[in-house]
């Protein structure tokens, strides 16, 4: 038990996650949950913010809200992450769009709403 607790924070410290969501409450909840699991968290509420963050720091995994309001989507960030070889979750309440945008994005889909613990577990599974 003690051994596991001693080793895991160290290995977790190196993990950095990018969270993209236009709902700040979700962002905050996810951020707290990821931090509790020892992640370093970067948050963005739109694509340009997220892309800027990605320019300056490498991330290990990302959670992307698909629909960012007013017809905007996370596609640009998904492409950038795909280019960098970074795995990501697509967090969406609109599973109908599987046939459209989601088909073109290669991420793992996680339905919205899902408890933040589940999101963290799914994201960790991609590492």
């Amino acid at each position: 038990m003690n051994e596991a607790q001693n080793t895991s924070p160290a290995s977790r410290a190196s993990r950095r996650v990018l969270l993209l969501d236009d709902e700040v409450f979700l962002l905050l909840d996810l951020e707290m949950t990821f931090e509790m699991e020892g992640f370093e968290v970067l948050t963005a509420t739109n694509c340009s913010e997220a892309l800027k963050l990605l320019e300056n720091a490498a991330v290990d995994v990302a959670v992307l809200d698909v629909n960012l309001g007013q017809g905007r989507t996370c596609a640009a960030v998904a492409e950038e992450l795909t280019g960098q070889g970074v795995p990501f979750l697509l967090h969406t309440g609109d599973l109908d769009r599987r046939g459209e945008l989601l088909r073109d994005l290669s991420g793992v889909i996680i339905p919205k709403p899902s408890p933040s613990e589940v999101v963290v577990a799914e994201a960790s599974a991609l590492l």
Binding site: D29, L30, M32, G93, P113, S116
Partner: peptide, 18 residues
Amino acid sequence: LSHRMKNMFAVIGGIVAI
């Protein structure tokens, strides 16, 4: 509507957890 409702439930979930 469906999308917004799910989003609303997700936000409520976030607030409760926080």
